[in-house]
Amino acid sequence: MALTACGSSDDSGSSSKSSPPASTSAPAATSASPDPQAQAKDEVLKAYDAFWDEQVKAYAQADIKGTDLKKYATKAALGGAMGDVLVMKKAGTATTGAPTHRVEVTSLTHSGETPEASIQDCLDISNWKTIRKKSGKVQPFPSNQPLRYITTAKAEKWGKQWMITELTPEGDRTC
């Protein structure tokens, strides 16, 4: 919310009412350059959110066709989602609703050829239900299934795009 509040007051006030680009670009460059780490973390979180949006779409239809999952996930994360979709398709299930999460970047490394990030998420699946596709009947969660648990992820920056490379649900670590 702080980013939205700062961005909307700065952007709407200066870009729509003052036309000189010099005054608009100088504060933007000054505010963006002091903390490239914060900007990179924001990019990682945007990619992670987009990955989850696309994964929810894929699970809702039990198919990755028509989603941009491959744009945000690769390696083990993409393989895991594709495997889940295949199991769901064979079982005649899909999902409805969506999980919510509270996510943070726990580490960010720019050294080496490929920047990397680690993510920790408190995933809440209480409103993300598995259903039988033909009947729409909700499948109950297993009795030992926590509804809120830690999920960790790894991301790598490929060119200009952050990609989710691993996603590890840690169901024994509740949050």
Rank of each mutant, 00 (worst) to 15 (best):
L167H: 08
V85G: 03
S23R: 12
R148E: 09
D35L: 08
D10Y: 05
K133N: 01
R148Q: 12
W128M: 05
C6Y: 14
H110R: 10
V105G: 06
D68H: 09
A28T: 02
A38Y: 11
G79F: 02
G79P: 07
M163H: 02
H110F: 12
K41Y: 00
D121W: 00
A2L: 13
T152C: 06
V44I: 01
K134V: 02
M88H: 04
A38N: 05
P169N: 06
A58N: 11
A98P: 03
I125N: 13
V105H: 09
A22T: 15
A153H: 00
S19R: 05
P169V: 10
V56K: 15
A117V: 08
V56Q: 12
G80Q: 15
Y59C: 09
K70W: 05
F51G: 07
S14F: 08
W162A: 06
S31N: 15
A81W: 04
T165N: 05
N127Q: 14
A58P: 11
K90I: 00
Q120P: 10
I64N: 02
M163W: 01
C122I: 07
K129G: 11
A29F: 14
P99R: 11
T109P: 01
G92Y: 07
D35H: 02
S118K: 15
K157D: 02
I150N: 13
P142E: 14
S9G: 07
E113G: 13
K65C: 03
L123G: 06
R148Y: 06
Q55F: 13
D84C: 04
C175D: 00
S143D: 09
F51Q: 12
T106S: 06
E43L: 14
C175T: 01
A5V: 15
T109S: 15
S118D: 14
T100V: 12
Q120I: 01
E156Y: 03
V87G: 08
A38H: 13
A94G: 08
K134P: 00
T93P: 07
Q39Y: 09
V87A: 08
E104P: 02
D124G: 11
A155F: 00
T24E: 01
T4N: 15
M82W: 03
I64A: 07
G136M: 09
D11G: 15
P20V: 12
C122F: 08
L45F: 00
V87M: 09
K133V: 10
A47F: 06
M1Y: 05
S9V: 13
P34T: 05
T106P: 04
R148W: 08
F51E: 09
K154A: 06
T165V: 05
A29C: 12
F51V: 00
W162V: 01
Q145L: 09
P20D: 10
S12N: 08
E104R: 13
P27E: 07
D49V: 04
H110G: 10
V138S: 04
S18K: 12
V87Y: 01
K57R: 12
Y59E: 15
T151L: 11
S111I: 13
H101Q: 15
S23N: 11
L167P: 00
D42T: 12
S107K: 00
S8N: 13
K90L: 01
D35C: 11
K89D: 04
Q139P: 00
A2I: 11
P115S: 04
K157Q: 04
T114H: 10
L69M: 07
A91Q: 11
A62W: 09
E116Y: 10
S16P: 01
K133M: 13
A117E: 11
A50V: 06
K90V: 01
S33L: 12
L108V: 10
W158D: 13
